[in-house]
């Protein structure tokens, strides 16, 4: 089955991104396809590669990066939500005249249309948030 996953909360404050990760891992293990993971609201913070969690804790962003790389998952960060919250890729940083970019590899920034498309194309859209 083809799954779309929507993540509405950032790492650590809420469990949402962790639950979604465990769900995605189980879905892939069961032979399902993850068509796309879409990060919205504070969920865009999962894409920051500047986070440095303590070594004895899980690294939510790394978990997602590894899962996405191993399974070729399309990881999309909502551009409007990301810009509000200071999440920029190299192109956007340059375009907006900002001094740094902070999107981890594997994630790409795009519009909300990508979420709607996931809703249209997937058999199920599963939401995790607060």
């Amino acid at each position: 089955m083809k799954f779309g996953i929507l993540i509405n909360e950032g790492p650590f404050t809420h469990q949402a991104a962790d639950t979604a990760y465990q769900f995605a891992k189980a879905a892939v293990a069961a032979g399902h396809e993850i068509f796309r993971v879409f990060f919205y609201h504070d969920g865009v913070n999962v894409a920051s590669d500047l986070a440095v969690p303590p070594q004895d804790d899980r690294n939510v962003t790394d978990n997602w990066v590894k899962l996405a790389e191993a399974n070729n998952i399309d990881m999309v960060v909502c551009i409007a939500a990301a810009q509000r919250r200071g999440l920029l890729d190299a192109n956007e940083a340059q375009r907006q005249g900002k001094r740094a970019d902070n999107i981890a590899p594997v994630f790409r920034i795009s519009g909300l249309g990508q979420l709607v498309e996931a809703g249209i194309e997937c058999d199920r859209l599963v939401t995790f948030g607060d």
Binding site: F23, A26, A29, R124
Partner: peptide, 8 residues
């Protein structure tokens, strides 16, 4: 979690 996936 595998059961969660099955339920969906």
């Amino acid at each position: 979690y595998a059961g969660f996936v099955d339920l969906t």
